[in-house]
Design a protein around this nucleic acid. Structure first.
Lengths: 225, 225
DNA sequence: GGCGTATCCGTACCCACGGTATGTGACCTA
DNA sequence: TAGGTCACATACCGTGGGTACGGATACGCC
């Protein structure tokens, strides 16, 4: 038997015109609201501890709306993941290509990456829970086209001048540096004095990079097979 | 109304005498069985996709037994985690201290670590799901006294000769290398040719370490503040 | 050997939460 | 303005983690 239903809610926040029709604007607003609320809840409580009921309550919609826009909880997480990744990448790319020396440029990128990793959303959603929730395969293919791509570019700019590195060695070095920086970023953000910890990480990686630089500039070849 | 209950099951596999009494042996056997079954299920399907019903079914007990030995699903995971970590650490420590040169020793440890990370249980339970399930804090304090401790020892043996590194820089370098090796190990185990990928990782880290070695042996100081 | 007791574990149940089926009204199009 | 479609709301189900309770059996003691 049908139940008396309240009048359908109309979303007031309609910033611009992503789709021309009113329906499309309302729909985009609810979807954005869902992703935003889910983003903060996932960041604060983690994936498992966040119920979809709390998400839809925060976004002031119902599960019908959620399942209309997303195929399930994991898909919602993935949307949050992409958003957080994209934000971090944008902030990192903003500081690149300012230095003329590629080594200095890479170190600037490192600094920006350390800042990004320290942001709670990135730590929780991308670094900590990303691999477990999405599965490692899906997690990787998401990263390949965002933050990891930046690292590949930077490594290529300092180690891969005029084809000194083949594709696979470039990937290997990039993986190593990417993992090093993620782990270091985590350590920084849980340190009692994050500023000092960040400086230490910069010093340490700077030292490692300096060692690489002396090898490269003294003509030592990167091994291949 | 009470239900006719089958006779209580007696576990036949009683290998040695961890506790002298029969009850203690039976109890230890069911606990071990639970951890073993949970370990393989967590490894194969992941934490969230593994139901406690499937665990107790595999161990041929009931949830009463499980909740007698563990406070919940997370505690069961933690027991599996500790077991997997301990196994990996034992295998790594077995190959250490064979070389006289500390640098060679560290590279041998790296090779053993790469092997350990490629093992499915370690990948899934420790690297992928450990931080998300245990929470990063608890994850770290578990690692601090196992695999991470090995890395600290190795880094200290090559970079920290006669107190060249203070405690915090030692931690920083260790975090960096630990993260690098975990990430590299993951990449190796998902590569289409893991053997070749492992060789490339060894080459790359060997190159990085060589750069460090030239810096250290030419008297360059590791920066501190 | 008899007996109280603590340990170990089985059974039945609760309920939170992800997911689904179905319907309804507001919006676009003609 | 009439029909169709889209964007949701509502009610419901199944699964699974967790709990309350009780019974059975090995152990310590006499």
């Amino acid at each position: 038997m049908p139940v008396p239903r309240p009048t359908q809610r109309l979303r007031p926040s309609v910033p611009a015109l992503p789709g021309s029709t009113r329906r499309a604007r309302y729909s985009a607003a609810t979807k954005r609201s869902l992703v935003e609320v889910a983003g903060s809840l996932f960041t604060e409580q983690g994936y498992a501890a966040t119920s979809l009921d709390s998400v839809v309550a925060g976004a002031e919609v119902t599960k019908g709306a959620l399942y209309h826009h997303f195929s399930g909880k994991q898909a919602l997480f993935e949307a949050v993941f992409e958003r957080v990744e994209a934000d971090a990448c944008a902030r990192i790319r903003a500081v690149l290509d300012d230095a003329e020396d590629p080594w200095d440029n890479a170190l600037a990128g490192l600094r920006a990456f350390l800042d990004a990793v320290r942001e709670p959303s990135y730590r929780r959603v991308v670094v900590q829970e990303g691999p477990a929730v999405l599965g490692y395969e899906r997690f990787r293919e998401q990263e390949e086209r965002s933050s990891y791509a930046i690292v590949v570019d930077l490594v290529a700019s300092v180690l891969g001048r005029d084809g000194a590195l083949d594709e696979e060695m470039l990937e290997t070095f990039s993986r190593i540096f990417f993992g090093a920086m993620s782990s270091a970023g985590e350590a920084v953000s849980v340190a009692e004095d994050p500023e000092a910890a960040a400086r230490r990480v910069e010093q340490a990686i700077g030292f490692i990079v300096a060692g690489l630089r002396t090898l490269v500039e003294s003509g030592v070849e990167v091994p291949n097979p």
